[in-house]
């Protein structure tokens, strides 16, 4: 599945435990809600190619564990991320209160220029809401974040969140604000030409030695 693409962006999904980070990723990649979603250990990985503004972009998405103890491991994945979904649960003020800490982590460990979109997840549970839209959008404004309320269950705004983040990065590349050539930008050019030069996979299989070494 060596598709061609114009750009590759490295994305993070961060936020407190149980806010629905893995479900957002699953909804984005599989287009359905993950019923039996076990909590994430360390970091899990997903990837999808999207078309934004006429460009094909491969998103390489790192879905991180929310529990504090894993930070020492998850932090090592922050470096060189171009974008991040910062997730809280609208039915849990606690997850909202820890947003500032997560944001600091992202900006110091990934890059000060990381494009962050704030996602108030579990929008479908409106009756249990503990954080208002207004309050969160004010926080987003103060911290220069984009903001959406999402539902990994219904899929509402999930695709939008990822696309919006990707579009902003593309715009910043166009305007010269972001330089893909810079080390650790989290952006790579898709070297389609190189890929096409490659031999077909069957010819590459250099008859590996019998397994079990």
């Amino acid at each position: 599945m060596a598709e061609t693409y114009d750009f590759l962006f490295k994305f993070l999904v961060i936020g407190s435990a149980g806010t629905g980070k893995s479900c957002l990723l699953h909804q984005f990649i599989e287009n359905k809600f993950k019923q039996d979603s076990n909590h994430t250990i360390g970091v899990e990985f997903g990837s999808r190619v999207v078309t934004v503004g006429g460009k094909t972009v491969k998103l390489q998405i790192w879905d991180t564990a929310g529990q504090e103890r894993f930070r020492s491991v998850t932090r090592s994945y922050y470096r060189g991320a171009a974008g991040a979904l910062l997730v809280y649960d609208i039915t849990s003020r606690e997850t909202y209160n820890s947003l500032a800490a997560w944001l600091t982590d992202a900006r110091t460990l990934a890059s000060p220029n990381i494009v962050v979109i704030l996602c108030g997840n579990k929008k479908d549970l409106d009756p249990e809401r503990e954080v208002t839209f207004l309050e969160a959008s004010r926080f987003a404004q103060e911290n220069e974040l984009m903001f959406l309320e999402t539902s990994a269950l219904t899929g509402e705004n999930v695709e939008e969140a990822f696309l919006k983040c990707a579009r902003t990065i593309l715009n910043k590349i166009d305007s010269g604000e972001l330089d893909p050539e810079r080390m650790g930008s989290g952006i790579q050019y898709g070297d389609a030409s190189l890929r096409q030069l490659r031999q077909p996979r069957s010819a590459q299989a250099v008859a590996p030695q019998p397994c079990g070494c």
Partner: peptide
């Protein structure tokens, strides 16, 4: 890990390998 050596060696893309 080595049990999957055949599949691993056939995969030539970071994302596919990790997936």
């Amino acid at each position: 890990l080595v049990r999957w050596r055949k599949e691993i060696l056939e995969e030539r893309d970071f994302q596919e390998l990790l997936l």
